[in-house]
Design a protein around this nucleic acid. Structure first.
Lengths: 160, 160
DNA sequence: AGATAAAGGTTTACATGTAAAGTAAATGCA
DNA sequence: TGCATTTACTTTACATGTAAACCTTTATCT
């Protein structure tokens, strides 16, 4: 059951094989951590992270958007958006509107109820942002942002 | 249904309220993007990202670990680990071993089959790491790593 | 010893992410 | 016109995350 050497050969590894790997694992881990914290805050307002993201996109846009447009901005695979919108609609946070000109398209519109909830969240969410990384200087934040934007360059427009 | 002004009042917003928010959204987005890509690669080997992480931890440790120890390193909430281990066990990639001294503890041990799969993945995964952020210089990578480590400082040991 | 509390996991219920396949409407083209 | 494609979603099946409650086994306190 245990070929000698295989396990011993593999078990001693450097913590990271490369700086690239170390950087990527750092991104994933930091994201998980923050995602976790933000999720807890949002839950106090009855929202999940994904739901909040959808609502924030709709508020930012200021007008209804097609389902797939929302899915695209969320990086999500298409099918997930349906259930997400379903649940938001059930909570009366968005409404679906069929487009008359192209009846395949479903526009999603944010409701005033949702806008009210978002307005409540803005302050505490901003506070949490400061709490999470407020100890970085503005220069460090700018540097971090620039490095992450550069990190995404090889991917953003290349879904293959 | 639409109190005048509310929507107009809220819809015009700056893309980001603060550098902190912008940085955090950059972290989350970059992570989603990379998580997505890495997941596709791992799926070719029959593994999900979480499953791979469990196996990598076990290989790195070189010996069986208690379930909760694994969960802790994954940032995950406790209950998720059970099903994760269940599925890995069903695929014969790990085995559960009750600890005799403390019968509450379940040790998880990686199998040689899993070690073989991991060995197959090492090379292509390393290639993907390079592909994703190989265009950053070693200095930029080091900077990014340092900034992310600093970003986690306010959280890592403070689960409250 | 006996009652309580704490620790390590598991179960249950629900919201997501992901892939694959299906549906309906709109387009392109012979 | 009529059929094949494309587009925009939906449905289905399965693997995760998360919270809350529960079961065992240990550790603690009298």
């Amino acid at each position: 059951m245990t070929p000698p050497g295989l396990k011993d050969e593999l078990k001693k590894r450097n913590p990271f094989d490369s700086k690239e790997q170390e950087a990527i694992l750092n991104i994933l881990r930091t994201s998980d951590l923050f995602h976790n914290r933000l999720g807890r805050l949002l839950r106090e307002y009855g929202l999940t992270g994904s739901q909040y993201n959808v609502l924030r996109i709709l508020r930012g846009e200021g007008k209804p958007l097609p389902s797939l447009e929302i899915a695209g901005r969320l990086i999500q695979v298409v099918p997930a958006i349906t259930g997400l919108i379903d649940r938001l609609e059930k909570q009366e946070l968005v409404s679906r509107v069929r487009c008359d000109k192209d009846r395949r398209v479903v526009y999603v519109e944010i409701t005033d109820k949702a806008l009210g909830i978002l307005a409540q969240i803005d302050q505490p969410l901003g506070d949490m942002h400061k709490q999470l990384i407020g100890h970085l200087t503005q220069q460090e934040l700018q540097q971090l942002i620039a490095l992450l934007e550069k990190s995404r360059e090889a991917v953003t427009c290349d879904p293959s």
